[in-house]
Measured scan of single mutants.
Amino acid sequence: DEDSERELEKLRKNNASKEEIKEVLKRLGFSEDEAKKLAEKAG
């Protein structure tokens, strides 16, 4: 959803580590696997 998109955008701009991105995604309700895949894509 839009909030998670914004959250990811912010992380990308701040050069967050894949680990940080994954944690945020998991907080947003993604499964471990989904979060890992998305973090890879974002990283």
Rank of each mutant, 00 (worst) to 15 (best):
D33W: 07
R12F: 13
K22G: 02
S4T: 15
K13A: 10
A39R: 03
E19V: 03
E5R: 14
K36T: 14
L28V: 00
D1A: 12
E9F: 01
E32R: 01
E32I: 03
E20W: 12
N15S: 07
K41F: 12
R6Y: 10
K10W: 10
E7K: 08
D33V: 07
I21E: 01
E34M: 08
A39W: 07
A39M: 13
G43W: 15
K10Y: 09
S17Q: 04
R6M: 07
L28Q: 03
K37Y: 11
A35R: 01
K18Q: 12
N14M: 14
K41A: 13
E40C: 13
S31V: 02
E5D: 10
E9Q: 12
L11T: 01
D3G: 09
K13F: 08
L11G: 01
N14F: 08
E9R: 14
A42P: 08
I21L: 06
R6V: 09
N14V: 07
E19K: 04
L28N: 01
K22P: 00
A39D: 02
G43E: 10
A16F: 07
K10I: 10
S31G: 05
K26W: 00
S31Q: 04
A16M: 12
K36P: 02
S17H: 03
E9Y: 03
L38H: 04
K22Y: 15
E34G: 03
I21Q: 01
L28T: 00
I21A: 03
N14I: 09
K37D: 09
L28H: 02
N14D: 06
L11N: 02
D3F: 13
G29Q: 00
K26P: 00
R27G: 07
F30R: 02
S17V: 03
R27Y: 03
E7F: 14
S4P: 13
N15R: 11
A42S: 10
E40R: 06
D33N: 06
A42G: 10
K13L: 09
N15E: 05
A39P: 01
K26T: 08
G43T: 13
S4N: 09
L38Y: 09
K10N: 10
E34V: 09
E40A: 09
K36A: 14
K41N: 10
K10F: 11
K13Y: 06
K36I: 13
G29H: 00
D3V: 12
N15Q: 09
L38K: 03
K41C: 13
S31P: 06
D1E: 10
E23W: 03
K41S: 12
E40S: 08
E40I: 05
E23L: 09
K13V: 07
E7I: 15
L25D: 00
G29T: 00
N15F: 10
K37H: 10
R27K: 11
D3E: 12
K18P: 13
E5F: 14
R27H: 05
E23H: 05
N14W: 07
L8K: 02
E20I: 07
A16S: 05
K36G: 12
E23G: 04
S4K: 11
R12E: 02
K10L: 10
S4H: 13
I21H: 01
E2W: 15
G29V: 00
S31E: 05
K18L: 14
E32A: 04
K13N: 08
K41E: 12
R12W: 11
D33P: 05
S17E: 04
K41V: 12
L8M: 06
S31M: 04
K26Y: 02
K37N: 09
K36D: 15
E9T: 09
S17L: 07
N15I: 04
L28I: 03
I21P: 00
S31H: 03
